[in-house]
Design a protein around this nucleic acid. Structure first.
Length: 283
DNA sequence: CTCCAGGCGTTCC
DNA sequence: GGAACGCATGGA
């Protein structure tokens, strides 16, 4: 990458409270961002390139498009308009686990991802691990996404439902999706045939929205919750999987607590906290 | 070799 | 209603 170009196009976002680039992109909520050699994170969202890094407690960004001002695509994507400090103060009062988890992952923001990408990505995530999920999505994008140039490099957008439908189930299977290929096709078909599908889902309260998504073959409560949290910013949706059930069993006596309005965010703090501890123990 | 990974559909009782 | 099982794949 051209260094002069990088410096010239980098914008400083200032000191962002409750904002950690590493935590945001390393907490398992998105699959198209990776750490660079120089410790930044870069990736593709909404068919554009974005790179973020921290220096002297300041956040810097590089993109092939503007959008960091109020209402811009990165402003929305990074959820810059939300006061996470206030949310943390209002939800984490158990004095123990939740407090520690929110403190540990306090820089997490729930990214407002593309709705189709979120749904499709978490269909792929089922019975799968994060490195392999990333590889599969990368293949889908390279094969069926639209290419574009940014800073002298070629990147690929996430494929549209139409592009995947045109490719056909066999080709999607060949990207390593396995038994999920038919699920991806059914989701693509639903979204392609009903242009208002996501807008309808968005208008529904979370429980009804989940039921609507679960009509798609291969979408269960977990995939629906992830899609609604990360694609629709429905913060009360809590993606409870086998992993989280173990945590609830360990700390809450097996029952899944009701974390209320911000259950999804609280769950993400817990997920990141417990997972990081486990990963560190393995090292 | 077996086991597991941010699950879900099917089949059985 | 819920427990058991298969599913594609690759890394540990």
């Amino acid at each position: 990458m051209n260094n002069t170009l990088t410096l010239k196009n980098t914008v400083c976002l200032g000191r962002l409270p409750d904002f950690s680039v590493e935590q945001i992109f390393d907490c398992g909520q998105c699959f198209r961002f990776n750490k660079t050699e120089d410790g930044a994170y870069e990736g593709i969202a909404f068919s554009h390139y974005l790179k973020l890094f921290e220096k002297d407690s300041m956040i810097y960004a590089l993109s092939d498009i503007d959008g960091f001002d109020i209402g811009g695509i990165w402003y929305v994507f990074l959820d810059l308009g939300r006061d996470y400090g206030a949310i943390k103060a209002s939800v984490c009062r158990d004095g123990a686990l939740l407090e520690r988890a929110a403190d540990y992952g306090g820089g997490i923001r729930i990214l407002r991802q593309d709705r189709w990408e979120a749904l499709c990505s978490f269909i792929i995530s089922q019975n799968n691990n994060i490195p392999r999920i990333k590889k599969i999505i990368d293949r889908l994008c390279k094969n069926y996404g639209k290419s574009f140039e940014a800073f002298g490099n070629t990147y690929y957008s996430f494929p549209t439902p139409e592009a995947l439908l045109s490719a056909g189930e066999e080709k999607i299977f060949e990207c390593g999706t396995g038994f999920r290929a038919k699920y991806i096709m059914s989701a693509a078909k639903t979204v392609f045939e009903d242009k208002a599908f996501f807008d309808c889902v968005d208008k529904l309260p979370s429980e009804a929205a989940s039921a609507e998504l679960e009509k798609i073959k291969g979408v269960g409560p977990k995939v629906a919750a992830c899609a609604l949290l990360f694609g629709f910013a429905k913060f009360d949706c809590m993606p409870v999987d086998v992993w989280m059930k173990k945590i609830f069993d360990k700390y809450f006596g097996g029952k899944v607590p009701d974390f209320g309005e911000y259950a999804g965010l609280v769950q993400q703090y817990l997920f990141y906290y417990e997972r990081s501890i486990t990963l560190n123990e393995e090292k």
